[in-house]
Design a protein around this nucleic acid. Structure first.
Lengths: 295, 295
DNA sequence: TAAAAATACTCCATAGGTATTTTAT
DNA sequence: ATAAAATACCTATGGAGTATTTTTA
């Protein structure tokens, strides 16, 4: 196959075809006239086609040149389109974001985040995908996801950057008729003998682990009576009397009847939500998203 | 504006996006791996966009990269189309020919030439334009015409190449009842006192000039009784008794009644038809045309 | 430890500039 | 004689190769 001609050569070709005057076209291209002469000669030789006839008084396109001129213009248009798109991508004006979110996020979080971001960056296309924090991290590391809205695990890979944007305390969730339900608050130790309803580790490892660790720290091992795969289910199971639970405070907003939520005394147990992305993949769109969420 | 990325860089981009493996992609591109690494880095830097995420086990496109990949493919396709077209143009497979022809050509010449050429080169588009030999030469020199089918003038510009493809003697054309009409042949001198019907110089200068010069050489000045703007009209005027004429032998084939055509003795007066084109614009299509016509 | 990408460094090809020649009107 | 394109020649930049280091699983 004929080697592809350099874009500079094609631009020279088009410029000369517009001007039909080497010296002027060279000036417009900001090169010296001999450079343009050579570029055209090289291009003609490389393609095996004479593009211009240099006559006594002027420079004219050959008919072959006319045919190729259209094609050359097309190549340049495509290249300029590419460059323009790259420029807008790099300016963060446009782009695509693949966003993961954990189902354990408080209900109001995702809609409000996305609404604010879309208002600020209407030309960035967002693709949302629900996944556990662990799955999100794996997908981010694999390049399948740009950012994750997740609960960061205790140990986070070095390639990952997590930006916390929400922090909330835990509350104790008790059945309405539980013996402790009338208290103003409870301590972790108060729950030491209780059966626990807990979120499955594969769903939200951060909460699962944090609760079990906190119990150990409080001097007892939680007796896990029941696992659930949604925060909502945890609360429902507590309401059904299957046990007690600890959940981020926002879980109280779910509005499930027959449970009470009590503040936890003597503990700094808090859960965080963060935006995660690759350390070395801070595209303008990703930065814009982090900025939008953090503010 | 962002400078246009070199096509090699785009090809590297596409190749790497296909392979997602620097070493293999480099091999396919016939360059060493560091060269590819650098090309991609330079491209990413020039466009201000990270195209690939190099993760632990593999190389993945960023979402920006996916957007730009389509554009890059488009640029390359356009460039390859250009190169392929150039190759076919240079091989003479396709092309465009602007062909001029003189109205003084024998009637059978143009159809038979064009038919043969079109059969041999069906993918070359021909645009035919009737013009005098002089006009054709001007247009060829100006680049408005690729080839001319014409009667070359005595003095031809240095830039022009003429390839003779038809040569015919002159014959004398006399009214049927002319005093010389019963001869088997005539010499130029026999016509010295006769009124001449002659083609207008602006129409076919070559014939006009050649006849007058031949008369001078034969020792007399032709008395031009009548000018005509078509060969046909010349013969018709002779038939009408306005005078005698000299014309290329093929004029006898016009089939006009009431005239006789006699061979000319003692003269080497001959007229030629030729293909003319620019010396430095021998495009494959032009060469193909000349070759087709000459054979 | 092994595989793959990034870096360091050297070299050469080529693109561009200046000065000059050629050409055509 | 003039204007414009082509040529000659030189320089410098940058792209490519080899060898090496770094990184990660």
């Amino acid at each position: 196959m004929t080697p592809l001609p350099p874009l500079d050569a094609l631009r020279s070709f088009v410029a000369l075809a517009d001007d039909l005057h080497f010296t002027r076209a060279a000036a417009r291209l900001h090169v010296a006239q001999p450079a343009l002469t050579k570029r055209i000669q090289i291009l003609e030789h490389a393609m095996g086609v004479r593009l211009f006839v240099r006559t006594r008084r002027s420079v004219r396109l050959t008919s072959d040149g006319e045919v190729l001129l259209d094609k050359a213009r097309h190549v340049i248009r495509a290249a300029e389109d590419l460059a323009a798109t790259a420029e807008r991508l790099s300016a963060g004006e446009v782009g695509r974001l693949r966003i993961g979110f954990t189902p354990s996020a408080p209900h109001h979080v995702l809609p409000s985040l996305m609404q604010a971001f879309r208002r600020q960056h209407p030309a960035i296309t967002c693709a949302l995908a629900e996944a556990s924090s662990e799955d999100q991290i794996r997908q981010i590391l694999d390049g399948d996801l740009d950012v994750g809205i997740l609960r960061p695990p205790a140990v986070r890979p070095a390639m990952l950057v997590c930006t916390t944007f929400l922090e909330e305390p835990y509350v104790a969730i008790l059945p309405r008729h539980h013996r402790l339900a009338s208290r103003r608050s409870v301590s972790l130790g108060d729950l030491s003998g209780e059966p626990f309803v807990i979120i499955a580790r594969r769903v939200v490892a951060a909460i699962h682990d944090q609760i079990l660790a906190a119990c150990v720290e409080a001097g007892f091992t939680a007796h896990v009576a029941q696992e659930a795969t949604h925060i909502h289910a945890v609360v429902a199971l507590v309401a059904a009397g299957c046990g007690v639970s600890l959940l981020p405070k926002s879980a109280a907003e779910l509005g499930v009847r027959d449970v009470v939520c009590l503040p936890l005394r003597h503990t700094s147990l808090r859960t965080v939500m963060a935006i995660a992305h690759l350390k070395h993949h801070a595209s303008p769109a990703v930065r814009a998203f982090v900025k939008s969420v953090s503010s």
